[in-house]
């Protein structure tokens, strides 16, 4: 298993390199001069030319990328063009808020979605089932920004229970997490329900019942563990989506997280900041995927064998 994990970590390197290269290229192709952006509108041509020389902007694209890569490997991702703060510091300062919202959203969708999905499947076509499918359908279709705004209207403006913007206390995180969780919750409910329905019909469930198992034991020990595999997959993919979705939610709720950082970097053509933050997000996404894959092996022994075999070859 250790070998497998190491191999997967190793494979992340080309992914990160590829992402950084493409980003670097895109930033290079978009119009605009970083030196001018840094110095502002009142800088003279000479000042700009001097800074360009100093930053090495006149070099060939590949030379610049290579220089960036060498520095990056040593942990130096450059300074923000806009604020001159080292980008790593900025990312570290911003990431916790994003992570907190994403983590709470995923927890919310697991803790609510899996039980609701199970009950829905076990009581197929009951009132509970119909209500939960309908809810899931609605949550899938509502855009996050609209849902967030509605929450603000209701809970901040009308009822005055929760603060509308900011990230200062746990109260600030409730609505963003709920907003971000909505779509994920819907997916989790639907996925849990459909896999449970499939698993319940399997022969081994009948075998378990023929052994005298209680209903509870059949559902939780025999069925749920088998149904969990696809659900975990969806949650793994979902976590990546959540990091992306954080962008919208952060804008709506005025949280200064990774999402807003990326948007601002694009707007101000802050290449070092953008490249580093996207690379960071990609890294987190890959790590979550790896975590999910490792989790599989604990849920399904057949997967473990496959992985071990693949890792060897």
């Amino acid at each position: 298993m250790f070998k497998y994990i190491m191999k997967r970590l190793f494979l992340m390197i080309p992914v990160i390199v590829g992402i950084s290269f493409i980003l670097f290229l895109i930033m290079d192709l978009t119009p605009g001069d970083p030196a001018r952006a840094i110095l502002g509108d009142y800088a003279t041509q000479e000042q700009i030319a001097a800074l360009r020389e100093e930053m090495g902007l006149n070099d060939n694209f590949f030379v610049r990328y290579f220089r960036y890569a060498v520095n990056a490997v040593q942990g130096d991702f450059g300074k923000s063009y806009r604020t001159s703060v080292p980008v790593v510091e900025e990312i570290y300062a911003r990431f916790p808020a994003t992570l907190q919202v994403a983590f709470q959203a995923i927890m919310l969708s697991i803790l609510l979605g899996v039980p609701i999905g199970v009950v829905s499947a076990v009581r197929q076509y009951s009132a509970i089932d119909i209500v939960s499918i309908a809810t899931a359908l609605i949550f899938t279709s509502i855009p996050a920004f609209w849902f967030g705004l509605m929450l603000i209207l209701l809970f901040s403006l009308k009822l005055g229970w929760l603060p509308a913007v900011g990230a200062d206390s746990w109260k600030h995180f409730i609505m963003p997490s709920v907003t971000l969780a909505a779509a994920q919750l819907a997916t989790t409910i639907r996925m849990t329900r459909s896999t449970m329905l499939e698993v319940i019909r399997q022969d081994y469930i009948r075998t378990a019942m023929a052994k005298g198992a209680t209903r509870r034991c059949v559902i939780f020990k025999h069925a749920l563990r088998n149904a969990l595999l696809p659900v975990v997959t969806v949650l793994g993919i979902g976590f990546g989506n959540l990091l992306g979705g954080a962008l919208i939610v952060e804008s709506v709720f005025g949280i200064s997280g990774l999402g807003t950082l990326m948007v601002n970097s694009v707007k101000s053509k802050d290449a070092p900041m953008l490249v580093a933050s996207v690379m960071f997000a990609a890294l987190v996404g890959s790590l979550v995927n790896l975590g999910v894959d490792v989790l599989y092996t604990y849920i399904d022994p057949r997967v473990k064998i496959q992985y071990l075999r693949r890792a060897k070859s």
């Binding site: 081994y204 075998t207 023929a210 052994k211 025999h222």
Partner: peptide, 15 residues
């Protein structure tokens, strides 16, 4: 007790 027809699917794969 009952033994079902298909042993391939009668056992729980994760236990």
């Amino acid at each position: 007790s009952m033994i079902f027809q298909d042993p391939m699917t009668s056992l729980n794969p994760v236990l």
